[in-house]
Nucleic acid binder design. Structure first.
Lengths: 215, 215
DNA sequence: ACATTATCGTGAAATATTTATTAAATGGAT
DNA sequence: ATCCATTTAATAAATATTTCACGATAATGT
C-alpha cells in the first residue's frame, strides 16, 4: 500500500511529534508500544495514529503493537535525520536571543548555524553561533548552503528581508512576524504568530468551553 | 448561549488574523476592502474569507466589498476586545524573558500580568511584570482572576505545574514545552512546539516541494 | 494445541473544510 | 435611466481528515 503516495498534510504535521516520543521511549528502554499508549502520550486518537502509520505500510503487529526501535529507525528515515540541517536566524532581538539559546539540536537534527542582525551584535558569538551583519546575508547563506531561515525581525522589514532570503536560495521560512509575507512557489512559510495563538485560545475558551484538544 | 450556530474551528483560528489586518487598514485610513484584497494580505483564499465572514451574517455588500470600520467593530465584539485580559507566564527562562518583552498588548487586549519562577528572579519586576515565586502560583492566579497561562518551564515539570494551574482555575494554556500535557475537559491547551514547526517545515520542503501555503 | 486476549489495518461512515459556481446586488460610467 | 463590471452570499461539489467498527492475526497463557 505504499510506493510513497503522498502522505496527507495533517499526518505530516504529526510526524515530528511521533518521532520525538519514540526517541523518548527508546531512551527509556521501552521495546513495544501500542497505538493506545501512543494516543495517551500524544493526545491524538489511536485510530488516527494507526491510520497515519499505515500510510507508510504495515509497521505494526496485530495483537502486539509496534516495535519501538523499528518504528523509530523507520521514522528517522522518513524525516531524514541522517544529516545535520543548518538554519539561519534573522534578527537577534529578545525572541532571537531566546531561539539562539533554544537547543533545537538536542531533540532534532537542526541547529542555528548563523545569525544576522544590524550592527549591534555583529562579530559576536552568542550561544556558539556567529552573528553576522545583515549586509552579509546573501553571501553567508549561499556559502553555508542554508535553505531554512527563522525570521524574527520587525514587521516593517519582514517582506524586504524575505525577498532577499528567497533570492539567496532559502526554501523554508519560519516566520515569527505578524506579517503574512509573500513568497514565490516552491518556498514554504510556516507562520508562528504568538499573539494569534493567544487570541485564539481566548476565543475558544469563551466560545467552545468544553472542547479540550488544541492544534 | 446565543442563537449563533457554532463557527468552524478553522474559521475561528483565522479570526485574530482578520482582526489584526483590519486594525491596520483602519489606521491607514482605508474605508473599504474586498475579499480579494484581504486574500492578498492574509494569504487565505478569497472564497474562504467570504465564507468565514458569512458565518456571522451578511457583513459585506455585493459589488462593493466590506466596510472596514463596520467589519472591525463587528470583529472587535466577536473577539471581545472590550476588556483587558490578564495572562500568567510560568517559567522565566530565555523564552519566558522574550515573551515578557513581547508586547502582546500592542496588538491585542492581552498582557502578561504576572510571572512565576523558582527563586532566581523572585521579587523582581521585569518589563513591568512582577515575578513571583512558584509557591505563590495558586494564590496569585486566584487573586488576580487569571485564567490563561503561558507555560515555558522544563518539560519534566510541565505536567505537575499544569495540574496546579488547572486546580487554580486556569482555563487555557499556551504550552511551549514539547510534552503534551493532560488536562480535564473544559481546559484548552494550545501547543506551540518550535522544534516541531521547524521539522515540519523541513519535511514539507523535502516532500511537497511546490506547495507554498503554511499553517 | 488450543483458546483467549490484545491490537493492528482498513473499508466505510461521519465530519470538517475548501473550492467552484451562480444568482443577486451594488456603485459607477455612459 | 440603463448598462456594465464588480463582488458578495448562497448553494453545491469536491477534498481532506477523523472516527467507527470489525475482521484478521500475532502473542500469550492454559
Amino acid at each position: 500500500m505504499n510506493e510513497q503516495a503522498r502522505i496527507p498534510r495533517a499526518t505530516a504535521k504529526r510526524l515530528p511529534i511521533y518521532y520525538r516520543y519514540l526517541t523518548f521511549l527508546e531512551d527509556a528502554g521501552t521495546n513495544r508500544i501500542s497505538s493506545a499508549e501512543l494516543a495517551e502520550a500524544t493526545k491524538f486518537d489511536a485510530a488516527t495514529i494507526r491510520r497515519d502509520f499505515s500510510y507508510f505500510g504495515a509497521l505494526g503487529k496485530r495483537g502486539y503493537g509496534y516495535d519501538v526501535k523499528a518504528l523509530l529507525s523507520f521514522f528517522a528515515k522518513v524525516l531524514d535525520q541522517s544529516s545535520l540541517i543548518n538554519v539561519a536566524l534573522i534578527g537577534v532581538g529578545h525572541l532571537g536571543h531566546a531561539l539562539l539559546n533554544f537547543n533545537f539540536h538536542q531533540s532534532s537534527n537542526m541547529r542555528i548555524a548563523a545569525a544576522f542582525d544590524i550592527n549591534e551584535h555583529r562579530g559576536k558569538i552568542l550561544s556558539g553561533v556567529p552573528i553576522y551583519d545583515m549586509s552579509e546575508l546573501e553571501e553567508q547563506i549561499k556559502a553555508q548552503r542554508i535553505n531554512i531561515a527563522i525570521l524574527t525581525v520587525p514587521q516593517e522589514e519582514a517582506q524586504e528581508i524575505t525577498d532577499r532570503l528567497v533570492s539567496a536560495g532559502i526554501k523554508g521560512i519560519m516566520n515569527f512576524t505578524p506579517l503574512r509575507v509573500s513568497v514565490p512557489d516552491g518556498v514554504r512559510v510556516q507562520n508562528v504568530d504568538l499573539t494569534n495563538e493567544l487570541q485564539t485560545l481566548v476565543y475558544f475558551i469563551q466560545n467552545y468551553a468544553s472542547i479540550t484538544t488544541g492544534k
